[in-house]
Structures are given as structure tokens and as C-alpha cells.
Simulated scan of single mutants.
Amino acid sequence: MAGVRKRYGGKRALDGFDLTVERGTVHGVLGPNGAGKTTAVRVMTTLLRHDEGLVRVAGHDVRDRGREVRRRIGLLGQHAALDEDLGGRQNLEMFGRLHHLGARRAGVRADELLERFGLMDTGRKAVKLYSGGMRRRLDLAASLITEPEVLFLDEPTTGLDPRGRAEVWGAVRSLVGGGTTVLLTTQYLEEADQLADRISVVDSGRGVAEGTPDELKARIGGDRIDVVLHDADRLADGAHALAHAAGTHAVSTDVDRRLLSAPVADRMTALTETVRALHARGIEARDIALRRPTLDEVFLQLTAARGAGRPGATERQEMPA
């Protein structure tokens, strides 16, 4: 995508959005509600026509070669597209027939996908009896019925418990291992951290940052040291001790959690010096830990500055009936 714009009335859902995804990778797209994630997916999957810009998927322009694009992609939306009264195998066979595979090939493909996603033993069970994770794995299998080159996953684990999310993550990893290119939109920062090779952060219809998870984390600093004090009354003294040990004035304080945090350049030296400085001042620490910035912190910092001017549109408003 290059310079893509899309308006809904007077609201700009996409405002010069650029995106490049490398073949055979998982590319995550992160953003708050209304940022333009779902609109971008709908444009790339030919479900929505954009106003301006260039969009090519699997080598084809979505405006002029939409049929060729649809032959090469799969889409897993936010809501399951399964018939809950049918069994898992029947659902996959139905999707195969809808894609003109023929009865024999549809049956073979259904069995291949049930085996691939660990659902062979439940293939004849009605989908309404499946767990949430099993339903999403089956929905993911259905999106692969034609062996697409590019798979779009639009918030694929919304509403799933941790076990269900882990099941879907495992399935996605196996797809990429087989050569499929995946574009993933999600609001779960951990999901993007776990799955994505590269991440684009989008806000107000524009990309505000792109890189690997580690590169994005490095934008707000490297390692940090966190110190939880036993006595809240010693927070000020502890902050001075940590600032001296870490060689920085950028010490943050969380009074409710009795937490002090500071960026560090040399992990082990900072840890040793912090312990010494606290001990010298008679300050008792309940916990001391070294950690890297989280993707949550990156996301909040990158989008917070733009929050005041963010349009009121939500993802639901981006998807008119």
C-alpha cells in the first residue's frame, strides 16, 4: 500500500497510509480503535474500494485485478463464519465446494486441514460444541481451503481465553513455517510480540512507526531496572539512590506500587550498584529486577501524543453495512 486514503463522509479512515509486507513473514498492524486497521484490511482484500493511492496484493492491483487478488488470499475476520449446526469436516467441505474445488478435492482438503490443526478427532462434532479456541482454529482452517499465498487475520483471537489464544498462535506459526505470508491486525500487544516479524503502528489512518518488536522497543530506551521498596516513605531516598547507581535523572516513581524504575546502559553494573546504594542508605527493597521495555509501553508512547487529535470514529464505524 502506498499513499492510501479512504473517507467515510467527512471522516478519514485512511490518510496516506503506507505498508509493505515481506513474503513469508508475519506483519503485525497495531492501533487503537478507529485507527484504520480494519479499513486497511477491507481495502487489501477487495471488500472496500479506496479513494486514492496504490494497493497491490500478491503482485496484483486490487482495483484492476481484484479477481486475481481474491484467488490468492484468505481472510479470517473478527467473527467466525461457521455453520454451528454442521460438523467441522462438513464446514470445511462446504467452503471447498463454494470455492469450486469439487466434492472429492473438497473432502481431501478438509481432512488435510483437520489433521494440520489438530481437529481430526472432532471433525464430526457439531461446531456449537467446540471450545472457543477450537472454533477459531477451524475458522482459520476454512480460510486456508484454497491454499492462499497471503492470509489476512483481523483480530483473530478477540474474546479467546489464554489457552485459546495460544492454540491459534501455534497454528499461525505453522502456517508461516510453510511459506504463507500473514498480515495480522490485533489489539493484543503480546500477540504481536509473539508472532510478528515486523510491526506497523497505525493511528488516525497513518503509520506512525514500523520495525521489528525489538527495534520498536529500542525507540523508548533499552533495559530498565525496577525496584520495589518495602517502605513507601523511603521512595524519595530510593529514587536518589537509583539515580546515582544508574547514572540517570530519568527515574519514574509509582507511589501506589512503591515502584522505582530507571533506564540503564549496563545491566549487571547497574544492578550491582543499585543494591550497594540502597544498602548504604539503609533502604530495604522487596524486589529488584532488570527488564526490557514492553510493546505496551511502546504502543502507549507512540499513540499518546496523537490521542488528543484522534477522530471519534471506531472500527465499527469503519465498516458500514
Score class of each variant (00 low, 15 high):
L229C: 08
T157V: 09
D154L: 03
E273S: 14
R49A: 15
A2F: 10
R70H: 05
R165C: 07
R276Q: 13
R286V: 11
L260P: 00
A142D: 11
Y188L: 07
A232L: 08
V41N: 02
F299Q: 10
V228S: 07
T181C: 01
L235H: 10
L119S: 11
A58N: 05
A40F: 02
L216H: 00
L19R: 06
D15G: 06
L48Y: 01
V4L: 01
L300Y: 06
L76T: 13
G24M: 11
A171C: 04
P320V: 14
L138C: 09
A232H: 14
Q301A: 15
G164C: 08
L47M: 15
D85G: 14
A166T: 08
R316Y: 08
G88Q: 02
T45L: 03
S252F: 06
G16W: 10
A142R: 15
S252C: 06
E149M: 04
R198I: 09
L153E: 10
G247M: 00
A141F: 01
T158A: 13
L76C: 12
G132K: 09
Q317I: 14
H99P: 00
Y130W: 01
A308F: 05
R292F: 04
T272R: 14
L92Y: 07
H79I: 09
R104A: 15
V172T: 01
R109V: 09
L129S: 14
H50P: 05
A304H: 10
G88C: 05
V4Y: 10
F152T: 00
T146D: 02
G307R: 14
Y188Q: 05
R70Y: 08
T212E: 06
R71K: 10
L229W: 12
G221V: 01
E112T: 08
A277N: 10
G36E: 01
A13D: 15
D193M: 01
I225Q: 09
V62P: 03
H27S: 10
G205A: 03
K125P: 04
S204A: 15
R56F: 13
S143Y: 03
G211W: 03
